[in-house]
Each structure stands twice: as structure tokens, then as C-alpha cells.
Design a protein around this nucleic acid. Structure first.
Lengths: 120, 120
DNA sequence: CCGGATCCCCTACGATACTG
DNA sequence: CAGTATCGTAGGGGATCCGG
């Protein structure tokens, strides 16, 4: 035991006690906005760009665009452009993202259970 | 307007309208090292400082100390100092941290299910 | 309405040295 | 062994302007 947990690649211990690669996961859903975006798209369904922007307090256009592009590149968000005037772009969670639902539910349960309401 | 679709009521707080606060959660378990540290302490039990350091590839003393202090301040890690020579300090996951187990398991399942093995 | 292109700042992160 | 103390850096994040 006590094998190194590589921050570059997934690695499992000998005894079958699998530790999945947190650094890789963090790359996909880490950062300041990705979890918020995914949460909305997963649990509240498709949103347009500005709709999303209004729902996420403090996010700028630039950052929202960047994060959405990154999520799209990782296959977590689907982007659909309508050739209209004014432009319309819809974002929705992919299947891969929807499979994250269990993670969000677990986080929610944890938050409710272990975090005092008045906690900063 | 953006009323919850309510796939799962659990995802929303008491007023039935709010998603649980991802930014707050990110504060607790975000960053480059916290998830790795927690994963080890939760699934492999108590570790000493240098033991932990050797298990986490690439972490420096400074960062490991900082992250452990932050986790301790948030009540996720317990620090036990033994007045011995040489010094011995033990770290273990608190109950609050152990309740995160479900989150890690959900992440693991997701990773196994939706991530191609050769994915960079 | 939905961005791209720039420029800039802050802080998370890290290298190194030193200590009880 | 298990830390602090300093100092330095990169890149994530942001403000602003411009365009289809």
C-alpha cells in the first residue's frame, strides 16, 4: 500500500482498492463555474446563453463562454446554434453529463446533512 | 421563469427553488490537492504527514501543510499531535469527511462508466 | 443575442531554505 | 519528522471593447 497517486494518470492500488484519478476529474469539472453550469443544465434542462448568464451570479460573458467551450470539448455540454436573427444558441447537458447526476445528489445530501445552515 | 424541473426534489433546498450552493462546496473541497488528500484519508484511513506526502505525487511540504490546515479549519480533517521525539502527527478524516464517501463513490462510478480508458 | 479579441490582475501554487 | 518563512511565478479569472 501507500502507492503514489499520480497526478498525471489514473492509478490503482494492487489490492483492488481503486482510487480513481481525482486530478483528471478535477480537470473536467473543476474551476469556479463548471459545477454551477452543469448543475443548472442537468437539473433544469436546456438554457440559452443569456438565460444561463442571468442565472449564475457574478459570471461574465467571457468566462461563461470559456467554460461552456471547455465543457463542450469534454463532451459534457451540447451546443446548438440556430441561424436566426437575433441569434439563438441553446446549451444542454449531454448523457455523459447527466450521468453526473448521482455526484450532484451525493453532494447535496452531504451539504444538507453536514453543513450548519448559518455556516459561512 | 426558470422554475425547477424537479427531477429530484432532493436537489433543491427547503424553499423548493434553490440549487445547493456549488461555490460553497467548491471552497471546501476545491483546489488541486484537497480531493486527493480526502480520498486517501477516507478510503485508506489515518496517515502521518510524510506518509501522506509520499503518497501524493508532486505535492510539496508547503502545499500539503496549507491544504491540511484548511481542511482542518473546515472540520474535514482531524490533526493529532504526539509529543514525542521524533515528532509524530496523525491525520484522519472526520465524520463530516467520511460522509463525503458517497460523493467519491459516485465520482468513481461516473469515471468508470463514462471515461474511455485511453482518454488523456 | 451571442459571442471573439485584448489586456491585465490576483492568488493559488510552488521552490528553497531554515527550525524545534 | 513535521513543519514554518520567504519569495517568485503561471494561469485562471475578469474588464472592456468590438463585431456578426
Amino acid at each position: 500500500m501507500n502507492k503514489p497517486i499520480s497526478i498525471e494518470k489514473r492509478q490503482f492500488s494492487e489490492d483492488g482498492d481503486e482510487l480513481c484519478p481525482m486530478p483528471d476529474i478535477a480537470k473536467l469539472i473543476g474551476g469556479k463555474w463548471k459545477l454551477i453550469i452543469l448543475q443548472i443544465l442537468i437539473f433544469r434542462g436546456m438554457k440559452r446563453f443569456n438565460e444561463l448568464r442571468r442565472m449564475i451570479d457574478g459570471v461574465t460573458q467571457t468566462m461563461l463562454t470559456k467554460q461552456l467551450r471547455a465543457l463542450e470539448a469534454d463532451g459534457l455540454v451540447e451546443r446548438k446554434i440556430y441561424a436566426e436573427v437575433p441569434p439563438r444558441v441553446e446549451y444542454r447537458a449531454t448523457k455523459r453529463a447527466h450521468d453526473l447526476e448521482a455526484v450532484f445528489l451525493a453532494m447535496h445530501d452531504w451539504w444538507i446533512k453536514d453543513n450548519p445552515p448559518e455556516k459561512k
